[in-house]
Amino acid sequence: MNKDSLEEMTRLLNEAYSMWLARGLKYVAATQSVEITRARIKDAVSLVGWYQQKMIGTITYYSPEINAGCDWYDREGVGRFGQFATHPDYRKLGIGSKLLERVENMARSEGVDELALDTAKDAVELIQYYKKKGYRFIQYVDWNITNYRSVVLSKKMTL
């Protein structure tokens, strides 16, 4: 990914997560720099959605080999995703669902058993969205870089 794309991805993440920051939830994506974006996508696969030459959605997939530091993520066969965002002006159009579907298909093609994510336990709307997509509660995690308790959600990728 080139420097301009990293800057655009960072702006998108900052804008998309600003609503959570306004609610007092300090998601890393709400304030991260380009350097943090670069570090967070290193060794991962980032997908982006474009509309009229503007980046309007993104999601980053981490294969099971990338250790993430919580019990569930450390399990064999568990992939995860993060940095999932849709620009506020383009929400409710299905862009995020398409990006998530692509990541789920990628995970299945890699033979991943479970695909997981974490989010703030107080982000009720997000948790409901993921539950409608088939994700279930696994555990709570306290990351030292946020000001909230997280929930880890996961979905079986194998039948």
Results as ranks from 00 to 15, higher is better:
residue 3 K to V: 07
residue 5 S to L: 13
residue 5 S to I: 07
residue 8 E to N: 05
residue 8 E to L: 07
residue 11 R to P: 00
residue 14 N to L: 01
residue 14 N to H: 11
residue 17 Y to T: 03
residue 19 M to W: 09
residue 22 A to I: 04
residue 23 R to W: 10
residue 24 G to M: 07
residue 24 G to E: 13
residue 24 G to W: 05
residue 29 A to Q: 10
residue 33 S to Q: 11
residue 33 S to G: 04
residue 35 E to A: 15
residue 36 I to A: 07
residue 37 T to Q: 04
residue 40 R to Q: 06
residue 40 R to M: 04
residue 44 A to T: 15
residue 50 W to N: 07
residue 52 Q to M: 14
residue 54 K to R: 09
residue 57 G to Y: 12
residue 64 P to E: 15
residue 66 I to C: 00
residue 66 I to W: 04
residue 73 Y to G: 09
residue 73 Y to V: 02
residue 76 E to A: 11
residue 80 R to G: 06
residue 80 R to C: 03
residue 80 R to N: 03
residue 81 F to A: 00
residue 81 F to S: 01
residue 81 F to T: 09
residue 82 G to R: 13
residue 83 Q to V: 09
residue 86 T to Q: 11
residue 86 T to M: 04
residue 87 H to T: 08
residue 87 H to F: 08
residue 88 P to A: 02
residue 90 Y to V: 13
residue 90 Y to P: 01
residue 91 R to P: 00
residue 91 R to W: 08
residue 92 K to Y: 11
residue 95 I to C: 01
residue 97 S to W: 06
residue 97 S to D: 10
residue 102 R to N: 12
residue 102 R to G: 01
residue 105 N to T: 05
residue 105 N to G: 07
residue 106 M to Q: 06
residue 106 M to F: 13
residue 107 A to Y: 01
residue 107 A to G: 07
residue 112 V to W: 00
residue 114 E to W: 15
residue 114 E to F: 15
residue 118 D to Q: 10
residue 124 V to S: 10
residue 126 L to K: 08
residue 126 L to N: 13
residue 126 L to E: 03
residue 131 K to E: 15
residue 136 R to F: 15
residue 137 F to S: 08
residue 139 Q to F: 14
residue 141 V to D: 00
residue 143 W to T: 09
residue 150 S to F: 07
residue 152 V to D: 00
residue 153 L to F: 10
residue 155 K to A: 08
